[in-house]
Amino acid sequence: MSATVDQVLDGIAECLQVSRSTISPTTVAADVPAWDSMAVVELVFMLQRDYDLTLPPAQATTLTSVEAVLKILRDAGKLA
């Protein structure tokens, strides 16, 4: 499926279990205490579940900002 930026931000907020208002396209992990290694695991699962996108293990470590998630989706042609 192809997603809008808003939908991706909704998904990220859900993975981090934080309020949607906390997450913007410029948010980085350091801004959100909940964005820890367990949250990154949730993001990995979200990309597979919602976008059928399988990350190579080494790429999982790059999920440290909203822009990084958006770029992965953009590069995979999954972002509207």
Binding site: S37, M38, V44, F45, Q48, L55, P57, A60, T61, L63
Partner: peptide, 9 residues
Amino acid sequence: GAEIASFAV
């Protein structure tokens, strides 16, 4: 953990 999860997925 993230690499392990990604490997599993």
